[in-house]
């Protein structure tokens, strides 16, 4: 539990939502991290303003991870700071610990949230918005945030219990498996979305064998765009190319 009162812990948890508030290229989330841990530091160094400044300076160093995973590191760092404040730990341990964890947790968070959960929620929202926009928006927000807020809550609590518990949380949460599942779900939903919309066009454009032909064209289109994306062509470039093609047709 640590020596923090409930109200300080809650304050730190809320402040974590602002981790990227002052995102900059030099220190990345450094100001956000210091802002988050500050209530805890003020508590540990209540009567030692000079040590507070010293500790704040080391927590203003370069930091970057996935915003939803920051709580795990911040919680564990707060625990180390507590031991530093009571003279049981070396402050240099904090730097090593943070640097080692931020990359790994960044990778876990980027894969899970940006690479799997967000596409899944997005495509579910896009499909359901064909029925009603409100339904689509509700699905998007709920699918993403149920998991998002849960990870924030559990991750921070695990971090606050110390480094070992932080790592145990990461292992037990099974992010790699979850990431894989969400990715496959997103791909299935993406396929369904492409299928629904191309069948709509095929139905409007003709009957019988032409529909199969249309499906093959749609399949080819998806495949070509996928290859282009893999070759690092950006969506903007594809769209601008289509804009030029379209404009040429108009002025023909």
């Amino acid at each position: 539990m640590g020596g923090l009162t409930h109200s300080v812990r809650r304050k730190v948890w809320w402040r974590l939502f602002l981790l990227q508030g002052c995102w900059n290229y030099e220190g990345m989330q450094n100001v956000g991290f210091a802002y988050g841990i500050l209530p805890a530091l003020r508590h540990y160094y209540r009567e030692r303003p000079e040590d507070l400044i010293k500790s704040l300076k080391r927590n203003l160093e370069y930091f970057n991870t996935h915003p939803a995973m920051g709580g795990v590191i911040l919680g564990a760092t707060a625990r180390i700071e507590e031991r530093v404040a009571s003279g049981e730990a070396d402050p240099r341990a904090i730097g090593t610990f943070k640097v080692a964890l931020m990359g790994s947790l960044g990778a876990i968070g980027d894969s899970y949230f940006w690479g799997a959960l967000k596409p899944m929620a997005s495509v579910a929202g896009a499909i359901l918005s064909l029925i009603h926009p409100a339904l689509g928006i509700a699905a998007l927000l709920l699918l993403y945030n149920l998991s998002h807020v849960l990870v924030r809550l559990k991750g921070f609590a695990a971090g606050m219990d110390g480094e070992e518990s932080a790592v145990r949380f990461l292992k037990e949460a099974g992010f790699t498996g979850r990431t894989e599942d969400r990715k496959i779900l997103a791909a299935i939903l993406g396929g369904a979305y492409a299928g629904v919309l191309s069948s709509k066009t095929a139905f409007m454009s003709g009957e019988g064998p032409s529909a199969v032909g249309f499906f093959i064209v749609a399949l080819l289109a998806v495949h070509i765009v996928t290859v282009l994306f893999r070759k690092a062509v950006s969506p903007s470039e594809i769209m601008l190319f289509l804009l030029v093609i379209g404009t040429i047709f108009i002025w023909r």
Partner: peptide
């Protein structure tokens, strides 16, 4: 929509 689907497919590729 097909470009969109390809975008989803590309970022969830395993």
């Amino acid at each position: 929509p097909l470009i969109g689907a390809a975008s989803v497919f590309s970022c969830t590729r395993t």
